[in-house]
Computed example of a mutant assay.
Amino acid sequence: MLFYLGLSALFVILATLAFLLLGEPSYLAATHLVFSLAVLPLVFAAIAHFVPVLTRSAGAPQGIWLAPLLLQGAGFLVFLHFFGVANTSALNLAAVISLLLALAFAGWLMVRARRCLGKPHPGWRWYLASLAFLVTGLALVLVMHYWPAERQAFRLLHLHLNTLGFIGLTAIGTLQVLLPTVLSGPDTDAAARLRLDLPLAVAGVLLVGLGAAFCLPLSLVGAGFLFYITCRPGLSWLSRYGLPAIIADGASAGLAASLCGFLLLLAFGVAHALGLLEGRNAIPAFMAAFLLPLVSGALSQLLPVWRYPGRRTPVRDRAREVLVKRGAMRALLFICGGVLLAFGHNEGLWLAAGGLLLFLNDLIASFCFPVPK
Rank of each mutant, 00 (worst) to 15 (best):
L178S: 02
L175F: 04
M287Y: 14
L216W: 03
F225L: 14
A267R: 08
S300H: 14
A288Q: 09
L356P: 07
A58G: 12
F76A: 15
F19W: 10
R125I: 01
H32F: 11
G84L: 08
A282Y: 11
V39E: 02
I283F: 13
L235H: 04
L164N: 01
S57M: 10
G254H: 03
A319Y: 05
L156P: 01
G348S: 10
A104P: 00
A267S: 13
G118R: 01
L178Y: 00
R114V: 05
F50M: 10
V305P: 03
S366G: 14
E278N: 12
L207Q: 10
N281Y: 15
L259E: 07
Y241D: 07
T230V: 09
V85W: 06
I97G: 06
L169D: 00
V177A: 04
N361C: 09
P370M: 04
D189C: 06
A253G: 10
P309R: 11
S239A: 15
G204R: 11
G165Q: 01
G107C: 03
A113D: 02
I64F: 14
L340Q: 11
G279Y: 07
L332F: 07
A331N: 01
A139V: 11
L70K: 09
L100D: 01
V177Q: 04
A201V: 12
R112N: 05
I247H: 11
L109R: 04
A9H: 04
L20R: 14
L360D: 12
A288L: 13
V143W: 08
C368F: 06
F166H: 00
L332P: 02
T163C: 00
A139G: 15
G168R: 00
I283E: 12
A139T: 10
M110I: 03
L274E: 13
